[in-house]
Amino acid sequence: MTSPLLAVQDLEVWFDLPHGDTLHAVRRVSFSVERGERFGLVGESGCGKTTTILALMGLLPPTATVSGRVLLEGEDILEDGETSVRPHRWTDISMIFQGAMNALNPVQTVGAQIVEAMELHGIAEGADAKSQAGQLLEMVGIAPDRLDRYPHEFSGGMRQRAAIAMALACEPKVLLADEPTTALDVMVQAQILLLLERLSQELGLTVILVTHDLPVVAEVCGRAAVMYGGEIAEVGPVDTLYHDSRHPYTRLLFAAVPDPTGEEEVVSIPGAPPRLDRPIVGCPFQPRCDRAFEPCPTEQPRLIALGADHQAACHLNDPAFRAVS
């Protein structure tokens, strides 16, 4: 059996807060992603999505403590901290950010920033690197003669395209996209998503798409993990999550999605996510859950396998408790 391209095992992240408090932002997160796959990471704002993917690249600030393993083709890239993870940055795993408004350095040309990555990792040098950068721009739908332009001369959508071109500069295996369309208007959002989908198909690129927007994931991704309160609530193929969800949060999240015809009202989930700076007893979703029962306030649910590729962390799926209820 071959190992998956990227496997995250028992990832935990704590942030030191002022006054000696700690915030447990990511809790026992595990998932794995295959080559060429588009994997979604969904959840409300503050549930730990960004923290999770920054941890994958070892990019969290010094106030963060990380434990767990991130296996890239079987190799634990976080094992020796900065030393073991840096060689993999951009060459194996690259990244694009929310809206890309500030993801590019305002005082350098777009071309220089793409070339910088190539030269750093020995992909290409000088004029050769520049012509390759031009090809990358072309691939994302920007005229190559715009290499010498500065980021402020680009529109929001073009900046995100340029950021994608830069992310592809070293032919990475995995692209982490953190809310790549959030700050953009709807038309541009759709174009960027299409672009990501196309690139993933054409290049066999693995994309991990982080978003709070479930329809986006449903449209682009094959599999997804739903995060809640720093944990994975449910993970599986998007179809399964939609038609056969086994976690009340996933179900409510799909229900919260506005009707595409725009006629029906948005159903939002009442209540607020749990605070992560204090211990959580029982199920984190229990206070907002419409199906909570006896074990929920006290017992912590674990991810339970519900099929070959489907897991959920909910007591409703646990035969031990189902017998009681």
Partner: peptide, 24 residues
């Protein structure tokens, strides 16, 4: 954000400070 991008690109801290941060 572009500093985070620079770190994600694999640049050394020294280069990030001189090339990207100080220039701005």
């Amino acid at each position: 954000d572009y500093i985070l991008t620079a770190r994600a690109k694999g640049l050394s801290d020294r280069r990030i400070v001189t090339r990207h941060a100080f220039r701005n």
